[in-house]
C-alpha cells in the first residue's frame, strides 16, 4: 500500500552502504553465530561495530564481503545484493578481514601489487604509483621492499590497511584495524579513518576498544551472542546513559547510608567512592544531607558513565581486553 504522502526515495548516493535483513549464519554444528541481524550503516558515517570476542562480528563481516554464505537473510552493499554482485561492488570496497594475511616470501609492495592485480577493474598502468601512495599513507614507504616475513605485527596491520587504500573506495570495512599497533600507530590509523571519512568514504570498523568508538565513530552497533542488541549514533548512545552521583569520601559506609536514605538506587562502593543513581531528586539535596550527616566530602558531583559501562549494560558481559 502506497500513500502519496510518503517521501521520495533517497538519492542513490545517500542509500545506506550496508544493509542487512534478517542476516543469520548457522554453522554446521548447529551453533548460531549470527542471529537475524538487521544492520543499516548510513552513508558517510564512521560506524563502530562493537562486541566481545565470539559475538559474531567477524562472521557478520565475512558475510558482508561474500566470503561466507548466510544461512538466511540478505546483504546489500552499496545498493547491490551480495554476494551476487560482488565482482561489481567489491572494487569499491576496501576490506581488512580478521588480521593481516600476506605472502611472507614477498615484499610488502609485491603483496599490494598482487592483490591489486586480482581486481580486474584496477588499472595496471597506475598500479605501482598507487601502491607507493598507499604505503606512504600508512607509513611503510621505507619497508616497501622488505619481505613481509620480516614485518612486525604492527607493520602487517598497516600493510593490510594499505591494501584497502590502493584505490579510492566508497566503503571501507575494517576488522579490528588497530589490533597490534602501538599507541603511535593507533593514533595514526584513527587519524587516517577520520581523514577518509571527511572525504566522504563510509567506514565500517569492528573493534573491541570503546575508546576507539568514542574518539572516531559517529555511529555504533553492539553485538552480543550473535544478536544485534543496539544500533544508533554514538551521541544518542551516550545521552541515554543516566548520569550517576559520585561521592568521594573516606566515610564510605555512612555516605552510602545517607544516599540510600534519600532514595538513591543502584549503589556501588569502591575504595574511595560511593556512587548511585540519584533518581529525580536534585543533587543539592544529597549534598546537604551528606554534610548534615558529618560525612567528609573530598569530591561530589554527577558523572556521565563511559560507553564501556553502557556496553556492559547492553551485553551483560565485559570486554576481554586484549591490550
Amino acid at each position: 500500500m502506497t500513500t502519496p504522502q510518503e517521501p521520495p526515495p533517497p538519492a542513490a548516493s545517500a542509500a545506506p552502504p550496508i544493509v542487512t535483513r534478517g542476516l543469520t549464519k548457522r554453522f554446521r554444528g548447529g551453533q548460531v553465530a549470527v542471529d537475524t541481524v538487521d544492520l543499516e550503516v548510513p552513508a558517510g558515517s564512521v560506524f563502530g561495530f562493537l562486541g566481545p570476542n565470539g559475538s559474531g562480528k567477524t562472521t557478520t563481516i565475512r558475510m558482508l564481503l561474500g566470503l561466507i554464505a548466510p544461512t538466511s537473510g540478505s546483504v546489500e552493499l552499496l545498493g547491490e545484493s551480495m554476494p551476487k554482485a560482488q565482482l561489481k561492488v567489491l572494487p569499491r570496497v576496501g576490506a581488512l578481514v580478521e588480521g593481516p594475511a600476506f605472502y611472507p616470501f614477498w615484499s610488502g609492495q609485491a603483496n599490494l601489487l598482487r592483490f591489486d592485480a586480482a581486481d580486474r577493474t584496477a588499472d595496471p598502468r597506475t598500479r605501482k604509483a598507487r601502491a607507493a601512495e598507499a604505503l606512504e599513507r600508512v607509513g611503510l614507504s621505507n619497508a616497501a621492499g622488505k619481505k613481509v616475513r620480516a614485518y612486525s605485527l604492527g607493520m602487517r596491520q598497516r600493510l593490510a590497511i594499505a591494501v584497502a587504500l590502493m584505490q579510492r573506495r566508497d566503503l571501507l570495512v575494517l576488522d579490528e584495524p588497530t589490533n597490534g599497533l602501538d599507541p603511535q600507530g593507533t593514533r595514526e590509523v584513527r587519524n587516517l579513518i577520520r581523514e577518509l571519512a571527511s572525504d566522504g568514504t563510509t567506514v565500517f570498523t569492528s573493534t573491541h576498544l570503546l575508546a576507539e568508538v568514542e574518539q572516531v565513530c559517529t555511529h555504533a552497533a553492539v553485538m552480543s551472542r550473535g544478536k544485534l542488541v543496539r544500533q544508533s549514533t554514538v551521541a544518542d548512545l551516550r545521552a541515554e546513559l543516566r548520569p550517576r552521583l559520585v561521592v568521594r569520601t573516606p566515610d564510605l559506609a555512612q555516605a552510602a547510608e545517607t544516599l540510600k536514605g534519600l532514595g538513591a538506587t543502584d549503589l556501588k562502593t569502591t575504595e574511595e567512592t560511593v556512587e548511585g543513581d540519584s533518581g529525580d531528586l536534585p543533587i543539592d539535596k544529597f549534598a546537604a544531607a551528606l554534610v548534615a550527616a558529618d560525612v567528609r566530602i573530598h569530591g561530589f558531583g554527577l558523572e556521565r558513565p563511559s560507553l564501556e559501562e553502557a556496553f556492559v549494560a547492553l551485553t551483560g558481559e565485559g570486554f576481554d581486553v586484549a591490550e
Binding site: 561474500g66 581486481d119 580486474r120
Partner: peptide, 16 residues
C-alpha cells in the same frame, strides 16, 4: 596464509 580472503575481497572472483 589467509591470502585467499584478501584475494576474494579484492575481488578476484572465485571462478576466475
Amino acid at each position: 596464509l589467509g591470502t585467499l580472503r584478501t584475494m576474494l575481497t579484492a575481488p578476484a572472483g572465485r571462478s576466475r
